[in-house]
């Protein structure tokens, strides 16, 4: 008699465990499903990439040092359409430069990543060597202060690892970084009328 009862109890025990297990399984499925449903409304059809807004950028120099990549995935991008082709380029020459030649002592760029080419009197073309550019933004500051602002810092999407948490974005003092749709991955600025049709 006692044994029978024990046997019954054991059966009951198993039943209770299975019941709890199934119950929890179902609630986990419901929970995960609910979470998916809630989050799925916020999913985008495409991917997102990090980019900095040159209008917010203060050229503090952290793009060069904060990126997880060495050298940084942020480079100076030259928007030729905006360039004035100045002889005295604020992005190329140090402010105290006296003679406008390509001497190293005259160059603003710490890695000599800007190439100055004579086009015709008095115009010069400036080209960025992205292999050398470290994204420090010194030339961007110079060009923005004295020139047209045709030199702009941008995340080079072919170099960017697209980290989940962009460490430059975290350190950016002006909050210039944001995730933007991968379909239009650049935020270059052009003039009002001559809006650049490149992004």
């Amino acid at each position: 008699m006692e044994e029978k009862q024990k046997g019954k109890q054991k059966e009951k025990m198993v039943d209770r465990r299975t019941f709890i297990r199934t119950g929890v399984q179902v609630s986990i499925v419901v929970g995960l499903g609910g979470l998916t449903a809630l989050v799925a409304r916020r999913t985008g059809s495409g991917e997102y990439v990090w980019q900095l807004d040159p209008a917010k950028c203060t050229q503090c120099g952290r793009c060069a040092t904060s990126c997880v990549k060495t050298p940084s995935a942020v480079k100076c991008v030259h928007v030729y359409a905006m360039c004035g082709y100045c002889d005295l380029c604020g992005g190329y020459f140090l402010p105290e430069t006296k003679t406008l030649n390509t001497g190293a002592e005259n160059q603003l760029c710490p890695t000599k990543a800007i190439k100055r080419t004579y086009i015709e009197d008095p115009f010069f073309e400036y080209t960025i060597d992205e292999e050398l550019c470290i994204g420090c933004g010194k030339c961007v500051k110079g060009c923005g202060a004295f020139g047209n602002g045709s030199l702009q810092l941008q995340v080079r999407q072919n170099l960017c690892d697209n980290c989940n948490e962009c460490s430059i974005a975290r350190n950016c003092p002006s909050g210039a970084y944001s995730r933007i749709p991968a379909g239009r991955p650049y935020l270059l600025k052009g003039f009002g009328k001559e809006k650049l049709d490149i992004t």
Partner: peptide, 20 residues
């Protein structure tokens, strides 16, 4: 930001602006 202080020159040597 981005003020056209120096207008884009009109080249006589047939120079074509490279694309960004």
């Amino acid at each position: 930001f981005a003020i056209q202080r120096f207008p884009k020159p009109e080249f006589e040597s047939g120079y074509i602006t490279p694309e960004t």
